[in-house]
């Protein structure tokens, strides 16, 4: 039962590729479903709405081709790792824009996810162990409240408190241009700037994850085999580490893999509030200005990374949960 069978891996791989293809196709279609033609928009912005100019832009962008031709071209270019050229920042390659933006988002997103998961596992388990105690009630109550707070509002309040009034941290940006010293100085500066955005993301995401973890543990405790183990006289600590924790981790483990993709979307508000560069705001602006290649590029990057993580999760899933077989 345990271990990988080649057939399973191949099956998973094919389905991952299939998912990716569908997602990329949707990525292609989605922006084209939006009202508003980017070429005409550009013309109205820069060339006094000239129709001839709009036609010219359409040719330049390949928008005069049939949608099927555009689709084939899009897939072909994508296979070569070419994400095309941004319309609004013509002729900048989409790849360059994304490569510039994504490290910042990854920095704050990954840092905050790791911190919040670690804290959630710890606090959630503790809370579940002490179920009904004052500590448990306090933690759960606070979590419920925090979980219901809008993401951006936390950001706004944090900027107001720590950036504007107390002036402990910068109100925005990812780094200070004046800091040109060695690696340590720059890293310190970047960490200093990332502190508030990460703090806001941790606060908001911690609550939900913690509650999840707590209820997972509680549910596992109610399982027959745990009750049995307890009846057999196994030590509490042993039950926790050997059975409960592992089984309770399962759902939150899949969550960890997938939250990355969604967190990128969630980063939009954070980046807006903290004037922080990143892929979230790039995506948002691309959508608002109908920059098809840039929208597709951003979505493609997210899609590829999520599908990959998902694939890995699928492979690891059976290893952790003995109840799910590999077949």
């Amino acid at each position: 039962m345990r271990g990988f069978s080649l057939k399973y891996v191949i099956k998973r791989f094919i389905s991952a590729v299939f998912t990716l293809w569908i997602a990329l196709t949707i990525n292609f279609l989605l922006p084209r479903c939006m009202g508003g033609d980017p070429a005409e928009y550009l013309a109205s912005q820069s060339a006094m709405g000239s129709l001839e100019y709009a036609e010219l832009m359409k040719q330049q962008f390949g928008l005069d081709k049939s949608i099927f031709e555009q689709y084939i071209l899009y897939l072909k270019e994508l296979l070569h790792g070419n994400l095309g050229v941004s319309y609004m920042n013509f002729p900048t390659p989409v790849k360059d824009i994304i490569l510039e933006a994504i490290p910042w988002t990854l920095l704050i997103v990954i840092t905050s996810i790791l911190i919040s998961f670690a804290l959630a596992w710890f606090l959630g388990t503790l809370s579940a162990l002490k179920k009904g105690s004052f500590f448990d009630n306090a933690v759960v109550g606070t979590s419920f409240y925090i979980q219901s707070i809008p993401y951006f509002w936390v950001g706004m309040l944090i900027v107001m408190a720590f950036g504007y009034y107390l002036e402990w941290f910068p109100m925005g940006h990812a780094q200070d241009a004046a800091v040109t010293g060695g690696f340590l100085a720059q890293a310190g500066d970047i960490a200093y700037h990332a502190f508030l955005p990460v703090l806001s993301m941790v606060i908001v995401s911690l609550a939900g994850r913690m509650i999840m973890m707590r209820s997972n543990i509680l549910q596992v405790f109610s399982e027959d085999y745990i009750v049995l183990a307890q009846a057999k006289g196994l030590k509490k600590g042993k039950i926790l580490t050997k059975y409960a924790l592992r089984n309770a981790l399962l759902p939150s483990f899949t969550g960890l893999m997938l939250s990355l993709g969604q967190a990128v979307g969630g980063a939009i508000a954070t980046e807006l509030v903290f004037s922080y560069p990143g892929i979230g705001l790039t995506t948002m602006n691309a959508i608002l200005s109908h920059d098809y290649p840039l929208i597709q590029g951003c979505f493609a990057i997210i899609a590829v990374s999520v599908v990959t993580l998902n694939f890995l999760a699928d492979l690891i899933y059976p290893l952790i949960d003995p109840r799910v077989s590999l077949s």
Binding site: E167, W168, F169, P170, M171, H173, D176, A177, A178, V179, T180, G181, G182, A185, Q186, G188, D189, A191, Y192, F195
Partner: peptide, 27 residues
Amino acid sequence: FWRRALAVTAATAVCLSGCGGSSGSET
């Protein structure tokens, strides 16, 4: 403690960059 620690970090950052330009930390 936090405040002091961070202030120190910021100050170091400015010192290290002292030769680079005349603009200080934005805060």
